[in-house]
């Protein structure tokens, strides 16, 4: 089968379309999944789907929204499909005990902004992305959906199928853990 010679229809136009949206799609996927390699696989799947709808999408002002929704859904499907299996082996212990939570220690953001502003944008981003990746799935996913995708609590509960109280607890712990994970680096830098 000779596959190399057949160029997809509208290839150049589609390449420009990809160029415009690929960072957004990849960022959404990698923040939700916490894994660059899997995020690239999902991003590929998203753009293959986008190609099937390209006639509509290329003229649409909501193409970005469409891509973001598809990316989020594919990531959540991926996580549901694979992580639940692993959870059977790994997370039979209570989720509530696996991350010792110390609000007092975590929420030390007095004089907050200036501390982080001392770092360069690139350093800050690297630190932030590392801290986000290190969060457990059950904290990172709602945090990304809430703060990056702007989803409401009710919407997140439906998407990830957890109770409202668990969602709020996970979000609170996720935020605290994120700040806590960034603080030592900031203090060292200072």
């Amino acid at each position: 089968m000779n596959v190399a010679k057949k160029k997809p229809v509208h290839a150049d136009e589609f390449a420009s379309f990809m160029q415009a949206f690929q960072d957004m799609v990849f960022s959404t996927a990698t923040r939700l999944l916490g894994n660059d390699r899997q995020a690239e696989d999902i991003a590929q799947e998203v753009f293959v789907k986008a190609y099937e709808q390209f006639e509509t999408l290329k003229e649409s002002s909501s193409a970005g929204g469409w891509l973001k929704t598809v990316t989020t859904n594919l990531c959540l499907n991926h996580l549901t499909r694979y992580r639940k299996r692993w959870r059977l082996f790994s997370e039979m212990k209570s989720d509530d005990n696996d991350d010792e939570f110390d609000v007092e220690a975590a929420i030390d953001i007095s004089g907050d902004d200036s501390v982080f502003d001392m770092l360069s944008a690139a350093e800050q981003q690297q630190l932030f992305e590392q801290a986000l990746t290190r969060l457990p799935d059950h904290q990172r996913i709602p945090l990304v959906l809430y703060h990056f995708d702007g989803m409401a609590y009710e919407e997140i509960v439906t998407h990830i199928n957890v109770s409202m109280s668990k969602l709020k607890t996970d979000l609170m712990r996720g935020r605290a853990a994120l700040v806590k994970a960034m603080q030592p680096h900031v203090e060292r830098t200072l």
Binding site: K6, M24, L178
Partner: peptide, 27 residues
């Protein structure tokens, strides 16, 4: 604070291989 921090973050740069992978898959 976290909301501001998240909103400040720039997009991650997609790997340079992504476009090639998609085009190969479409082919």
């Amino acid at each position: 604070f976290v909301d501001k921090l998240c909103k400040q973050q720039p997009l991650r740069t997609a790997p340079s291989t992504l476009q090639l992978r998609v085009m190969r898959e479409l082919q």
